[in-house]
Simulated assay, not measured.
Amino acid sequence: MQNEKDLFDMIKDAYPQHPSNDFILSTENSLRQKARKVNRKWMIKKVSAISAGFSLFSFAISWLFFFNGTESITGAFHSVENQSSLAIEEKDPLVYIYHTHNSESFMPELGVTNPNEAVSDSENVTLVGKELSKKLIEKNINAIHDDTDITGILLERNLSFTDSYSISREKLQATLKEYKNIKMIFDIHRGSEKRTDTTKNIDGKDYARILFVVSMTSDNYEENKDFAFQLNEKLQQLYPGLSRGVLEKGVNPQNTYNQDLHNDSVLLEIGGAENSVEEVYRTTDAFAEVIKEIIEEKKNNSSWMGLFTAPS
C-alpha cells in the first residue's frame, strides 16, 4: 500500500539510524496489521452506532407508549448535559498536552535493542503526556491530555508521515475554539539522541533530559521563544542539568509545529529511545513542578487574573 510505504519512509528519514532489512520487513508488516485493525475498528463503530441508535429509538417509543414520559426523557438528558457543562465551566483547562508523533516509544519498554524498533501502538510517548496531566491535576492545575492516534489516522486517510502535524493541528484548533482559557500547549515527543546525551543522574536517580524546540517560522516565534527560555530557566533552577536547552528550528514555513496557533506553545523532546519510561516519568513529575511555579508567577498577569479568582 502506498500510504504504508510513505509512512515508513518518513519514519526512517526522521531518525539518523539506518534500519536493517529485517527491521524494514517487520515494520512494513506491522503497518499492514495496523491498517487492518483500523478497518476492523471502523466496522465495529458502524455496527455499534446502528445498534445504539436502534436501542435508543426502541427505548423512547416504549417509554412514550407505556408511561407517556416525554418530559422525563428530555429532563434526564438535559440534566446530564448540564452537569457536564458545569464541570467544565467550574474549572477550565489551562494546559493542553498532545503528541504529533504518538507512536514514538522507548527500547527498554519494548525489549528491543535497535532504536529503529522503538515504535509502538500502545507503549509509547502518550504515556508521558498522561503522567504529566495526572501530576498537574494533583497540583490543582486543570489539563487536557489528547492521546489521539495520529499514526492510525494517517493510515486511515491514506496520508504520509509528513501530514502528521496537519492531523494534530485539527484537534488543537478545535480544542482552542472550545476552551478559550488554555494558556500553555505542549507537543511531547521522544528524542533520538544517544543515552549519554538524554540522561541526567540527580541524587542517584537517572532522569530523561528535556529539549525545548521552537519554530522560527511561526508568527508567534518571539513569544514562544520567550516561553521556552522561561521553562528552560526554571527547570535548570530546580533541576540543574536536566534541560538540554532551547533549540530554534527554521522548519518549512508550512510546518510551524502548530506553534502559530498559540503564543505559549512549545515542542518537548523528553528523553531518547534508550531511556526507560520510569526515567521519563521522573522528568515529567519534575516538569509539572516547573509548570506550577511559572503559573504562580503569572498570576499577576492581567490576562490570567480571572482564572485564579475563587467563584462567588
Results as ranks from 00 to 15, higher is better:
residue 4 E to C: 13
residue 6 D to P: 03
residue 13 D to Y: 09
residue 18 H to T: 15
residue 27 T to V: 06
residue 36 R to N: 13
residue 38 V to Y: 05
residue 40 R to S: 13
residue 40 R to E: 15
residue 43 M to Q: 13
residue 57 F to E: 05
residue 65 F to A: 12
residue 68 N to E: 12
residue 79 S to E: 10
residue 83 Q to W: 07
residue 84 S to M: 10
residue 90 E to Q: 12
residue 98 Y to V: 01
residue 101 H to E: 14
residue 107 M to S: 07
residue 111 G to N: 11
residue 114 N to A: 14
residue 114 N to T: 10
residue 129 G to H: 01
residue 133 S to W: 06
residue 133 S to M: 13
residue 136 L to T: 07
residue 137 I to F: 08
residue 142 N to G: 02
residue 149 D to A: 04
residue 161 F to Q: 09
residue 163 D to R: 07
residue 172 L to S: 06
residue 172 L to T: 08
residue 183 K to I: 05
residue 186 F to Y: 10
residue 190 R to K: 05
residue 193 E to V: 11
residue 203 D to K: 03
residue 206 D to S: 04
residue 207 Y to L: 07
residue 210 I to N: 12
residue 213 V to E: 13
residue 214 V to H: 08
residue 214 V to Q: 05
residue 218 S to Y: 08
residue 227 F to K: 01
residue 235 L to E: 15
residue 235 L to N: 06
residue 250 G to Q: 06
residue 251 V to G: 10
residue 260 D to M: 00
residue 262 H to P: 07
residue 263 N to L: 00
residue 266 V to E: 01
residue 266 V to W: 02
residue 270 I to A: 03
residue 274 E to Q: 14
residue 275 N to S: 12
residue 278 E to T: 02
residue 280 V to D: 09
residue 285 D to A: 08
residue 286 A to L: 07
residue 287 F to K: 04
residue 287 F to A: 04
